[in-house]
Amino acid sequence: MRAFVSFSVLALIVVGLALSLSHVPFGKDRMQVANYYLDHGVADTGATNLVTAVVLNYRALDTLGEVTVLFIASLGLGVFLSWPKKKEGTQEEGKRELPEASLIVRRGSQFLFPLIILFGGYIFLHGHLTPGGGFQGGSVIASAFLLMFLGNNAYRLRHTPLTVTESLAGITFVVVGLIGLGVGGYFLNNFLPKGSMFSLFSAGVIPILYSAIGLKVGAELSGIVANMFESRSER
């Protein structure tokens, strides 16, 4: 019965998708809005990576909303995993479930940790010039913390610096947007000089905003990983 219902729902969706996709002109020319972004993107924003120009200049308000969605998801995860309150002792028991990793794994992860953080910072600082940006750099930073958790059994992340970083990055994004509102007349106006193409200090406020997003996403995803590791086992 259940398989039959699943199959019929699936068949319905297949027919609907096929009917609607057959009207999409795949691989023909771009939309007009994309033509505008490609033709005027560099002149308007100064960013040579046009995806970044769309994410942080033309659609920056959407990006603020998406960062907020991610923040609420990580907040909900923290609430669910820390409630009800842990009893004393169960925490210590959960910590010693696994044997300690070997010396090579421990030292290797500690050696690689700053290098991965540096690479994440490089990715989000050059987001307006090369492929990459705040979202990718933030996830690379979070994978560095994941490596530390996997390699070192006793590793514990202090949550206060993470929270402070996250809050400051979010405030930076909104304050830059409000300064744009005051100077140029609309929220997230690109009020700084565009600079010359292909240099690090170009594209106005875009490097500042992408660094803020990178720090915020990195702190949030690291917080998610840390919360998952530190929650007590249910078995």
């Binding site: 990576n49 995806v51 492929p131 990459g132 940006g133 990718q136 998610i224």
Partner: peptide, 19 residues
């Protein structure tokens, strides 16, 4: 789409699996 490829490699193949 190199931007999307970087995000998918770091998040889809790395962090999601770990979680």
């Amino acid at each position: 789409a190199p931007d999307v490829a970087m995000a998918e490699a770091a998040i889809g193949a790395g962090l999601t699996t770990a979680i």
